[in-house]
Design a protein around this nucleic acid. Sequence first.
DNA 1: TAGAATTACTAAAACGTTTTATTAATTTCG
DNA 2: CGAAATTAATAAAACGTTTTAGTAATTCTA
Lengths: 333, 333
Amino acid sequence: MKALSIKDIAIEAGVSITTVSFIINGKARDKSISEAVIKKVEKIITESGYKPNQIARSLRTGNSNIIGLIIEDISNSFFSRIARLIEDKAYKKGYKIIYSSTENNIDKAKELINMFKSRKIDGYIISPIKGLEEEIQQLLSDNKPVILFDRNLPGLDTSYVGADHFKATYESIESFIKTGKKRISLVTTDIDVQQITERLAAYKKALDDYEIVYDEKLVLQVPFNQEETDSMVQLEKLFHTEDIDAVLFATNYLAISGLKVLKQIDKKIGDNFSVIAYDDHEVFELHTPGISAVQQPLEEIAETVIQLILSQLSSKTKLDNQQIVIPARLIQR
Amino acid sequence: MKALSIKDIAIEAGVSITTVSFIINGKARDKSISEAVIKKVEKIITESGYKPNQIARSLRTGNSNIIGLIIEDISNSFFSRIARLIEDKAYKKGYKIIYSSTENNIDKAKELINMFKSRKIDGYIISPIKGLEEEIQQLLSDNKPVILFDRNLPGLDTSYVGADHFKATYESIESFIKTGKKRISLVTTDIDVQQITERLAAYKKALDDYEIVYDEKLVLQVPFNQEETDSMVQLEKLFHTEDIDAVLFATNYLAISGLKVLKQIDKKIGDNFSVIAYDDHEVFELHTPGISAVQQPLEEIAETVIQLILSQLSSKTKLDNQQIVIPARLIQR
DNA sequence: TAGAATTACTAAAACGTTTTATTAATTTCG
DNA sequence: CGAAATTAATAAAACGTTTTAGTAATTCTA
């Protein structure tokens, strides 16, 4: 049984396709279609359950009411929670979200953008990776709204929404120092995005301000796409060979791997050994003892992102780009 | 700058649109296009970076190379991990996945299906909720492949992939009983899906087999869309008013709420009080003490689902439906 | 060597919409 | 009262593909 088309409705109502189209799109009064006809056609539409073919619509209009969301990894709780919030909010405004993970793989990311492009996505929300500059620039040249979030790519003229990673990291390190810690380790990843490099910069700055000598042996850069077991080996080595009294983990999954290692080697977290994790996670709340964490304002980030993209979508003229940095909070546990 | 179309390529190459189309779709040799022309056109295509408009393609062919994935909540780690695995596997076969959350809201679920339908999605992977039977039946009548997973809807003639919830629950309760527990509580939700009701049935059966009297005061059915704080109040009441020596949580988020409460009221998990959670989670591994959990074979579920849907998509004739139940494992911690 | 088969290619219809330009009938107004 | 304006509707083009049903030209085959 074929789906109904606008033609079927037109025939049924005894009017032209054009008339039906105007009614569907709310342009009926504008185009001075009589009330009687409007009523009749609307009745037929609801009774028949006719739904316009969005593909045909997109082909003709060039847009889709779909926003593409490109993130690192949907199975990471930071991203899945953001995705859910963004989805919710977009949905209420009549937009659908399509999301997909890049796994920090530049080729996959490019392919995703291409796929979204060829589906005439209306706008893009991207947590970018280095190497994507050209593709994003291309989107901007096509006049598609692009909002970057979580991470920024310098040199691109887009809007950006993210947490204040520098400040949050600085304050974390500061809080270690204020409780007398001297041998402070930073466990981070090797991906070269602003949000990560900023954390390293803030780490150095804080040490410097409090006149603690920077020791590169205390900084572990875990390769991004490495298996967790390998990372755990690296972490174990770090904990065994260096004399450390505090650790800041720059991502939540690194912190989780770290906690697993600490449990294995039976190194206790307490007054002599402190831990802070970046991006909160249920694990940290329930852990004994509780793990302090930098909590990014997910709700606010999602709200800001969606609001920015919607205003760009509804505006005819190109709006000014905005760089919005939202404070993050250190939750002491 | 407008995007290139097949027409531009045809003009550039000095051949017809038809010829270009045949070449793009790998039908060139079939249609006896000469090697020389094929080479020339392919060269122009790669050099110009032309990408076919998928919307136009979908409009003409009626399919999209997109599979829709409808789940309860992408921010739940069970679903986000499954989603990631399915996405990965589908991607390798040239299919894209669009996912969206129902939040167990029947209206939202119906709307999602409608949206997917009007975008001519090729196939559906659904973790269904009660009340969706009619819509799913409709998809089946349209000859669209539908695979249900995690939960089954009785009375529908579809393929299904899920874990053996009955057996896993039975064994969990049995393991409690074998360590001498007598007052065993079940914390579950009130959503009426097979996967949940099965867990209750298995609970009763296990008690019965070991001649323990079923006491409904030990079963807590938490309303699904309730705020977590409210659930925690209910849980606290349960733990305070009833004398309980073991708890099985029927979902991982309930278990997490439960652990939070136990921490708050300082009730220790140990020999006199055991806990098992359904669906593993990093929290359970890192918790002190470790929390035993029923681990669903995510990888296997994802693999089976994707394999089923791909074979249905590539087959011209309607394939027989399969009901695949995969054993779950109780991880003792 | 004449018809059949094959090779190499293409014109045009179709998919289901939106939108522009147009028509015909009616109303307004100076 | 006649021209201008408004009302009510529509025909047809366009979006960018795929695919059917061709057409010539060439090669086979008996």
